[in-house]
Nucleic acid binder design. Sequence first.
DNA 1: AGATTTAGTGTCCCAACGACACTTATAGTA
DNA 2: TACTATAAGTGTCGTTGGGACACTAAATCT
Lengths: 228, 228
Amino acid sequence: MTEQHFTLPLFTVDNVMFAIDNAKLNVLLVKRAAEPYNNYWSLPGGVVDVTLDKDVEACAMRKLQQKTGLTPAYLEQLEVFSGPDRDPRGYSISLAFFALLPYTPVSSNINSVSHVSWWPLDQLHQLTLAFDHQHIIHHAHQRLQQKALYSMLPVFCLPSTFTVGQLKTVIETILGKEIQRKSLMRRIEASNMFTLTEQKQHSGGRQAQLYQLKPGVNITHFNRNMGA
Amino acid sequence: MTEQHFTLPLFTVDNVMFAIDNAKLNVLLVKRAAEPYNNYWSLPGGVVDVTLDKDVEACAMRKLQQKTGLTPAYLEQLEVFSGPDRDPRGYSISLAFFALLPYTPVSSNINSVSHVSWWPLDQLHQLTLAFDHQHIIHHAHQRLQQKALYSMLPVFCLPSTFTVGQLKTVIETILGKEIQRKSLMRRIEASNMFTLTEQKQHSGGRQAQLYQLKPGVNITHFNRNMGA
DNA sequence: AGATTTAGTGTCCCAACGACACTTATAGTA
DNA sequence: TACTATAAGTGTCGTTGGGACACTAAATCT
């Protein structure tokens, strides 16, 4: 492995992918298999390949696919983190992405990475992550909480059809506090983003209405405050 | 594992700096003095100097200072624009910043750039800008309008002490529509971000109360919808 | 002194939402 | 079959923020 010395800063992409499992918010991490931070858990990311990636979003998607086998349901730019000290190899610039997905177990037999794993967010402080990835995750989490208050983003943590109860649980998990079911239904109604389907049962209760995203709806354009 | 050889994309920083003059929203542009797009108007920006810039924000500030002589009152990351076609020299990645400043005339005798000038936003469509800068400005404008609705950001287009009337004019210029003075005063009150000072007159009317940002207030953390 | 102009207030109404009690539908179990 | 637990969904009150707009206040101009 050749040690590279940059006169130009190194530009990389990192992904903070969230999913909800077992009523907990999880982040997808990969164990590094190279120096620096060999064997440390880190965010899945990498370097842009100008022959493969039509833009940085495509790069982020490709890296996620390649390193974790998963494809996010939602992806957006979070923020650029930069400086001379965040990578021991020298000045580096990283564009962090923020991604959501319905929880999917990961198989860790992906090439080039020894391990892939979902980690509950509330256990991350026990780990020492590579680079400033702990810091990046913290920012991503804050963004997720912000957006959960005033947008419908959390639906990307659910399958394509879902019930109000499921969405309520997801939002509560993200926010770490309870919300009013009534308020959520009003939001769903007012957003005009969803259609109904048949029915579906749940653990010992009345059957819940299934909702579904209307095709071609831009979910990021709904503004309403909740529990602020 | 084999170390792959990548053609590294060019990473640059571009600044969309807004100011209000003559009841119009203006963008600061510089005339390029090199290929490609020689003599085209463009956003002031450049490449990171790892010896000078402690991070990308510092780079953005330095480039603005160096190319235009102005220092923004507010600066935040906008978005990363990337792809193989936005720069004829090849694959490029640009982090765009979004900046605000009380209007200040520019002197165009800055080294390395032939001209610097404020351009009214509503005249930009008459120009052909370098690269995808028109596109970037469009995004920045949308962001500015969004934030003008639910934050106090527009105060950065005013001197450190200002009147409600001035702020009203600034917001109306940004949004392109009138807002209620009463509503604005309620927002100022509710935000708890400002203190009062003495008085000041205006063209043929009652003297207006001068407001001032409280020290150490993070202006980005006020959420309230206006005119949405 | 009166007109004009801008600053600031008082008040009505409506929309959004938290809170919470109430009704409805389903599964489990006696 | 009835009773109970549980989750889904509704009705409604009260609060809050903000649009609309008329009103008062203070300054300049003629």
